[in-house]
Each structure stands twice: as structure tokens, then as C-alpha cells.
Amino acid sequence: MTNLPEEVLNVHSIESLGTHDGPGVRWVLFLQGCKLKCVYCHNPDTIAMEGGTAYPITQLVKKAVNMKSYFGATGGVTVSGGEPLLQAKALVSFFKALKAQGIHTALDTNGRILNHFTKILLDEYTDLVMLDIKHMTEKGYQSITGMRNKETTFNLAKYREQSGRPMWLRYVLIPGMTNQNQLLHQMGEYFKDYKTIEKIELQPYHKLGVHKWEALGWDYPLKGVRENTMEEIAKAKAILNGYFKEVKIN
């Protein structure tokens, strides 16, 4: 009988004690590969499909179990990217093994992939979905990501809502592009009746990843864009407070 090769995840990097990637203290895996090229991406080195390190899932589970004492009552493992759902099949095995060890699982995704393995992952093994909302219009989505959306992100949101299981939204505030009152109201109106959304996290635009673009030899698309003022951030939060249970500024 031929032994099947062990499943692996292609990992870009690992953060041992993350506090901004889900509830509590998290062990965070950033997977390699993404089909989008967002103009504000602060980890552009995760975009290429090639590269990264192939980790056997059994090794990753062992590392997570070794971190379990740090998680407390609310922490656990978060898988981010890149785009983790590009490796949804292997993630099913990984999250299944984590759940068998009593470890909380969270998925940070742009929501563009809703296939057979994604549905198994969401239905059975993902305690929390953190869904990145790029823009509320198709034109805006394309200007940010370089790709069409065709409601894929919203389809995953609807699927998660139907499951009745927890979801957070994430949204980057870019002056003149996403931080517009009309768009914030539009997002609030779209999601206001969702019962599974526990909070929305706002990420004020920053330029911390510009040096990574330069290191890759890429032109940074938002060179002339300023950061948000405190007043703008407060106004965005005030608008969204009218629609969501909790609005957090990251």
C-alpha cells in the first residue's frame, strides 16, 4: 500500500502572540498567495503564489497545541494571508485537527472563494470569520483590487449569515476612496439586519507597507494619498455605530 503524502500549508510567516487578529491572544499563520493586488496592501510579499514555506499540517497543529497555554479563555489560532481560502482543502484538515484539540479557530479572508471545501470549512470548523470588505461598489472594488468582485464577497457573507455562526467585518478607511459618508451608510444599510456580525473593525489607512512595495521593485499606487485625520476616523465610527453592535478602530 502506497502512503499518501502528508497535507501541507504554504506559509509566508507566523506570528506567535497576535492581538489584532481575532479575540484574545492568537497564534497567526499568514499563508502565501493571493489573487488580488490591493493598492494599500501592507504585506505585498504575500501576493505571489510561489514562495513561502510548506509546513506539514501535523507540525503546525503540534506548534499550536504548544501555544495553547497562552490562549486563555478567548484566544486561539487565526489563519490570514495572502488569501487563506486558496488553500481551503488543506485548511479543512488543519482546522479539524485544531478543533479536536479544543482550539478556537478564526479565518481572515477577502471572501472571493465559496467552493465545496470552503463550505465545509465554514460549516464545521471555523469559529469566527473575519471578512474583509474592500468596497461597496463594483467600480470601487476593481480600483482597489484590480479584479472584478461579482458579489463573491457578499455571497460568502450571506452564506455565513445563514449558518448563524459569528462573523466580524473589516474595512480599510482610505481618504477619498473608501472613507466616504455615502459608502459607510451603504455598508451599514446592507449589513444592518445580519444577526451574525458581532463587530466591524476599521483600519485607518497607513503607509507602513510602502517599503515592502519598493523592495519588490513595485510602484506604490497610493503615493499621494494622505492618512486619515482623527476627526475623519471619529466621523466614520459615529456613522457605523448606527448600524453595528460594535465598531472598533484598529
Rank of each mutant, 00 (worst) to 15 (best):
L4F: 10
T105V: 07
E214F: 03
R148M: 00
F71R: 06
P204K: 12
L4E: 12
E83I: 03
T126C: 07
G224T: 07
R226K: 14
N181K: 11
K195S: 04
C41Q: 05
I133Q: 04
H206P: 02
N179G: 02
L60G: 04
Q186E: 10
K89I: 01
N149M: 01
H185V: 06
S93Y: 02
C38A: 08
E227H: 03
V210E: 10
D21K: 06
G102A: 12
F30H: 10
Y243A: 15
K134Y: 06
M67Y: 15
T196R: 07
K199G: 09
A97Q: 13
W27C: 06
V129P: 06
Y190S: 01
F154M: 12
Y243W: 14
N3Q: 08
T74E: 15
Y205P: 01
I133G: 07
K237G: 11
V25Q: 11
F30D: 00
P56F: 11
K99A: 01
L29A: 04
M49S: 08
H42N: 09
G224V: 04
K119Y: 15
T105L: 09
E189S: 11
I57P: 01
T126Q: 10
F71W: 14
V28I: 15
T53W: 05
G146H: 11
E201H: 05
A238K: 07
Q186S: 12
H211C: 04
Y194M: 05
L121I: 00
S163D: 00
H20I: 07
V8I: 09
F154L: 12
V247S: 13
L60K: 00
K195Q: 15
P23G: 09
L184T: 00
H211D: 04
A215V: 01
I57L: 02
M1T: 13
E232I: 06
N10R: 14
S93E: 13
R148P: 05
E83P: 02
K223G: 12
G146K: 08
P44V: 00
G82K: 02
V28A: 08
G164Y: 07
K63A: 12
P5T: 01
T178K: 11
G76H: 13
G140T: 04
T58E: 15
M1S: 14
F95Q: 00
K35M: 09
N10G: 10
M67H: 14
Q142P: 08
W27F: 15
I113L: 12
G22Y: 06
K37N: 08
S80W: 03
F191N: 07
R148C: 08
W213F: 13
G82V: 00
Q101K: 11
L222T: 00
E201T: 13
H12Y: 09
G24R: 05
P56Y: 14
Q180A: 05
N179A: 10
E151V: 10
Q186H: 13
K63C: 03
Y55C: 02
N43I: 00
E214S: 06
Y55F: 15
G224Q: 11
R148I: 11
D21R: 03
Y190K: 12
E151N: 13
